[in-house]
Write a protein that binds this DNA or RNA. Structure first.
Length: 304
DNA sequence: GCGAAGAGGCATAGGCGTAT
DNA sequence: ATACGCCTATGCCTCTTCGC
């Protein structure tokens, strides 16, 4: 037994081969909670593996990861992307080390590789109150699909929902509290739970869709066929994007489309527009203020 | 065949915990 | 207080599938 253990200890390597890397990659992906993370990390690790295997076989350590960082920089990727790729490679190293496939000293060296500097912060592309109104005012043909799309826009704008939150909404998530409607116990990004008031005007638009689609239980937003029949179990997040895009085109604000739509900060920006000033609206670079501001969003109920 | 919607792929921003 | 790392999300294409 002791012989076996010492053999295993001696077998920790500095140069990993494809099966070792694949095994470690699977361990990393299994440990991630979100499907989006699995997809993104999977892509990042695949990219690193194909680069690593195309290079002359060097020890999988700090130097190799630094070289990979230079490679990413030479591709002119954004710092956010480079840091994401490096985070995935660090995780790959921890897993390889934990599985006895990589020398722990080499893994520790990889951990010390710094990420790319993020210089400043983009100001984003916020929807103004006027643009929000124009989006909601897009003329409707009265079709079932139009009613659904209008309801989607109304909940996104009125409640500051993310796309993923919207697609999973069920009838049972809506409850009446003190004569007001609210989406209760909404599971948001990172598994956080919140309760969101629903403005009266948004509730009316939603009711129109529910009546047209004859939905009285289960998931709220479903697919609509060309002939107007409602089918399927739910819609995808991609569809929400397409709905927003089509409506933005019709509203004549397509140029706004590179957007942070779906993040609560968008609604906050709309709420604050009336008192906009450069000095008072500095939370884009002030982290603590940004955090405290993030959920003041729901009083946009006066939007239409 | 056509339109609605999903899947896949890659890039990048948001947001939270923690180290400094 | 803030910079950084990590995970989770969106943005925006193209290509494919599905229902009618």
């Amino acid at each position: 037994m002791s012989l076996k253990r010492s053999k295993r200890h001696r077998s920790t390597k500095s140069t990993l081969r494809l099966p070792d890397l694949d095994h470690s990659k699977n361990s990393v992906l299994q440990s991630l909670g979100s499907a989006a993370s699995k997809r993104t990390y999977g892509y990042a690790i695949e990219d690193f593996i194909s680069w690593y295997c195309s290079e002359p076989r060097l020890a999988f350590g700090r130097t190799v990861v630094l070289r990979y960082r230079y490679e990413l920089e030479s591709r002119r990727l954004a710092p956010a992307t480079i840091n994401l790729r490096l985070a995935a490679v660090r995780r790959l190293a921890y897993e390889a080390s934990d599985n006895g496939l990589l020398n722990p000293d080499l893994a520790a060296g990889i951990r010390r590789v710094k990420g790319a500097k993020r210089l400043g912060m983009k100001l984003g592309n916020w929807l103004t109150v006027d643009q929000g109104r124009r989006l909601l005012a897009v003329p409707s043909s009265g079709s079932t699909k139009d009613k659904r799309d209008h309801a989607i826009l109304s909940l996104l704008l009125g409640c500051g929902l993310r796309r993923a939150e919207l697609t999973g909404l069920k009838m049972s998530d809506f409850q009446q509290r003190d004569e007001h409607w609210a989406i209760v116990n909404l599971f948001g990004k990172g598994g956080h739970i919140r309760t969101v008031p629903v403005p009266g005007w948004a509730m009316e638009v939603l009711d129109e869709w529910l009546r047209a689609a004859q939905i009285d239980e289960g998931v709220i937003f479903r697919r609509v066929s060309r002939t107007g029949s409602v089918w399927g179990q739910k819609i995808s997040e991609k569809l929400v994007w397409w709905v927003v895009r089509e409506r933005a085109k019709l509203a004549g604000i397509e140029s706004w489309l590179r957007t942070i739509f779906g993040e609560p900060v968008l609604v906050f920006a709309m709420q604050r527009e009336a008192s906009w000033s450069r000095s008072s609206f500095s939370w884009g670079i002030d982290q603590s203020r940004q955090r405290s501001a993030t959920w003041g969003a729901v009083s946009v109920s006066s939007l239409p």
